[in-house]
């Protein structure tokens, strides 16, 4: 076990051994979560605050459940209705919360880098639950765990990430993580939804989905935000679905045992065919949700151990 970080702000700063440490521990929590008696005490006595400056149902619920299962006192703050609206700066909010001595701070913010900024100002461990278009590390970790459990390994796989790469923090964290674990990554999408400088990411880029999906082991679909659908980045929903929506025909290009993933919430009939999403032989979308709780338990457990060690020292 080598995980020695103070915060979990992104995949960028993690070593492959860190990633393996989180996934190994998460594996045991995934098993625990299937027992009727789910309680652990890794976070007993600790206070966890979930600060979401941006709407979220599943990620917030997942972090909340993860904290409760490990015995933390969990508080949710919906920052959209709080003093931030009254003009308080992010740093003031952070300082205020810091004075209440939380141990774990889970933060989602619409601006890239906002969670890094906040982490500089507090004494507790900070977990990035998504910042702008930058990173969403726990999503990449839960995706990795899902792949590892489905495929038996997390290296030398052909993995396609499809859709709105440009605006996706999920894509960035996944590209970083899967690259560190030595997989071959393909990005598939219209050029208007590709970030600049993509040629230097060490990935293959495809504009044709059939070509891009050929012989891949894993197909990760991304959510297309509603506000990007009409004319700005793509001509229309239906043209997008025709060219980039995942259906069984396009999936036929992938390996026979390829799995289908989606970070949710899905737009059925926009980026993914509804029947395919529910096909338990191909889709691991429900497993992703399940692994989400386990990965977040593992991440918070590891950060809490470091926190205790630092306090003791």
């Amino acid at each position: 076990m080598t995980f020695s970080h103070r915060h979990l702000l992104g995949i960028e700063h993690l070593a492959p051994s860190d990633i393996t440490a989180v996934l190994d521990l998460a594996d045991t929590y995934a098993d625990l979560n299937r027992q009727p008696q789910k309680h652990g005490d890794a976070l007993a006595g600790m206070t966890q605050i979930n600060m979401f400056f941006e709407n979220s149902t599943r990620t917030q619920a997942s972090f909340e459940l993860a904290g409760m299962r490990l015995g933390a006192d969990v508080m949710n703050m919906s920052m959209q209705t709080s003093s931030v609206k009254k003009g308080e700066t992010l740093i003031d909010t952070a300082m205020t919360l810091n004075a209440m001595h939380p141990d774990l701070l889970v933060v989602r913010h619409p601006s890239s880098g906002a969670v890094d900024l906040l982490a500089q100002k507090v004494n507790c461990a900070v977990l990035n639950a998504g910042d702008g278009r930058h990173e969403h590390p726990t999503q990449a970790l839960l995706d990795a765990l899902t792949i590892r459990r489905a495929k038996g390994r997390l290296h030398r796989l052909n993995i396609a990430i499809c859709g709105d790469i440009a605006h996706s923090r999920v894509a960035r964290s996944n590209i970083l993580l899967l690259g560190k674990m030595e997989n071959r990554i393909r990005l598939i999408g219209p050029p208007t939804l590709m970030p600049s400088g993509i040629g230097e990411f060490g990935v293959e880029v495809f504009e044709d989905m059939n070509e891009g999906l050929r012989d891949v082991d894993v197909v990760m679909m991304l959510r297309l935000q509603k506000e990007r659908m009409d004319g700005g980045f793509i001509p229309s929903e239906r043209e997008y679905y025709f060219r980039y929506g995942l259906d069984s025909e396009k999936l036929g290009m992938a390996k026979e045992d390829a799995i289908v993933m989606h970070p949710g919430p899905m737009n059925r009939g926009v980026e993914i065919d509804g029947t395919l999403a529910d096909d338990i032989n191909r889709s691991v979308i429900q497993d992703q949700v399940e692994m989400g709780v386990a990965v977040r338990m593992a991440a918070m457990d590891l950060l809490a151990r470091n926190l205790r060690q630092r306090t003791a020292a």
């Binding site: 890239s112 880098g113 278009r133 960035r172 400088g197």
Partner: peptide, 15 residues
């Protein structure tokens, strides 16, 4: 400025 660095940081860019 658009490019790999800005894309990794998830910042809005200009060519």
């Amino acid at each position: 400025t658009s490019g790999k660095f800005a894309s990794l940081r998830g910042l809005p860019t200009v060519s």
